[in-house]
Design a protein around this nucleic acid. Structure first.
Lengths: 132, 132
DNA sequence: GCTGTATTTAACCTAACAGTTAATTAACTA
DNA sequence: TAGTTAATTAACTGTTAGGTTAAATACAGC
């Protein structure tokens, strides 16, 4: 019993139904019935998924009459992001090489290399890499 | 059979043994025996973990005589990072509120608020938030 | 071709996971 | 109080995950 926090978070996220639930909750707090609505699945099944998400600290549940409103708790996701940090350089690195290569190619087929100067305000490269 | 890519990636990452293997591979390519060494686990168990990682595209395997060198393939991790993007604001938001609060507190206990001006070169706040 | 080394495959076990239906709890409503 | 709605719990089922040991495969060197 009781795997480490990150393992619990990741295995909670590994299920597409649970990720869809989180996506819905990103739009705002809602009830179990409304959360269940898009899925071709029984209520108890949804209830179990919510329990898993709650166990991972990814949602919190309140109480309002017979409803149990759920809301997103994103804190554990930061744990995933932090873990990813150690690996970020691996995919950014390869894109950097690709960028360099593409610039070389473009420099050869173009009259002036100034055409390819990037704006300093640009936040994301064409390969979807974030600036940090 | 065949879950979606992101689910496959996340469930591969949900196991601490497999994450430890990736951490080792981040240091460089190596053999199965060396990967197995730190774990109190049989070789076939490690072999299965590697198969899962390979299935998720997180490692690639070469061949050199009787050895099968493994190397990290970080591309699927970018998929996780991209998925996280939609949620990043949720934890950053709460830290922003905390920052604001702390600044208010500090402003009250300090003579001059200029003390708290942040350097433009700073990449990460004291709460470990990345600038984007 | 035999022997040793690296690794995988096969067969098996157990526990956990994702789902079901039926019963139960909890709260509002008439 | 009886009935309705929201959600969970209980009990059960089939499948998958993660581990084991023993056997098989692949290659190198003698």
């Amino acid at each position: 019993m009781s795997a480490d926090r990150l393992s619990t978070t990741l295995s909670a996220l590994a299920d597409p139904t649970r990720r869809a639930i989180l996506a819905r909750l990103a739009l705002g707090e809602t009830t179990v019935t409304e959360l269940a609505e898009p899925f071709d699945m029984s209520m108890p099944a949804i209830s179990k998924h919510l329990k898993v998400l709650e166990g991972a600290g990814l949602i919190a549940r309140g109480r309002a009459a017979q409803w149990r409103p759920c809301r997103l708790e994103a804190a554990p996701l930061k744990g995933v992001d932090d873990w990813l940090d150690d690996y970020r350089r691996f995919w950014e690195q390869s894109f950097d090489r690709l960028d360099a290569y593409l610039q070389t190619v473009q420099a050869k087929t173009s009259k002036t290399s100034k055409t390819f100067k990037q704006s300093k305000r640009q936040k994301v490269t064409k390969h979807g890499r974030k600036t940090r």
